[in-house]
Amino acid sequence: MKTLKILALLLGLMILGALSWLLISAMKAPHSFIEEFKTEMAGIKNNKVILSYPDDLLERKTRLDSRLAMSDDDSIGLRINLKEKFLYLEIKGIVLHKTPILEQKSSSFFKHLSVAEKYVLFHNPLTIQKDDATISKDQFQEVIAPKDTIEAAKMTEIIPDTTLTEPVMYRLYLNHGIRVQITGQLPDSIPQFWPRFRFDYRDRYKYLKELTRSVIRNKPAPYQPTISLVINSRDAEAIYRAVPKKGNVILEL
């Protein structure tokens, strides 16, 4: 009995030790991310003239440069303005859709960026590398063609249900390891706890898996600066379906 107790205690300590190790590695992650970012940006640092612009002008230049760069593209792009708290869908400089940001939360990484660093990171639109969503980009319902007019008459025409029923949540993984998470706000009457929990859990599980792998391989732990936004659910759906898979995203911080 005594041996069993000692073994259980040892096991407990080992588990706690492993978890502490994971936590320390996770806490170290931003440091290695920033170091990597610095190395990546070292080349652009040479552009001393632009980076020496007064802060207010450089901030404006960042916005204008990125919008102009996005207007060169033929597809719809997303512009996120955290200062004005609005999300815009744009194509060729034309604003197609505008929606207010109801809630926003961003990683501390963004708060530490200087205006010059923001210029380096955001003067060109970021590109969506992949996404993860609770809804599909294109949802098709399949209908078998009727054999004759009798069968066609029997077929009831599908009247689509346009009421909000499913929670809309998605993450856009952008270059530079940045990601944007958009959640559609639904009325309280619609059950959304479990879908949200599942979506969130999936992300945490994936993160833990990557973290453990990097710890085992003795590599820097992953860090993805995230911007989380809550907007109207219908708008969230429209934006997700409008922006192409490899679309452009402008971040205006």
Partner: peptide, 15 residues
């Protein structure tokens, strides 16, 4: 620790 604290680790560190 696993699902709440550790994923928040980077943010805790930055804060």
């Amino acid at each position: 620790l696993l699902f709440v604290v550790i994923p928040q680790g980077p943010e805790i560190a930055l804060a």
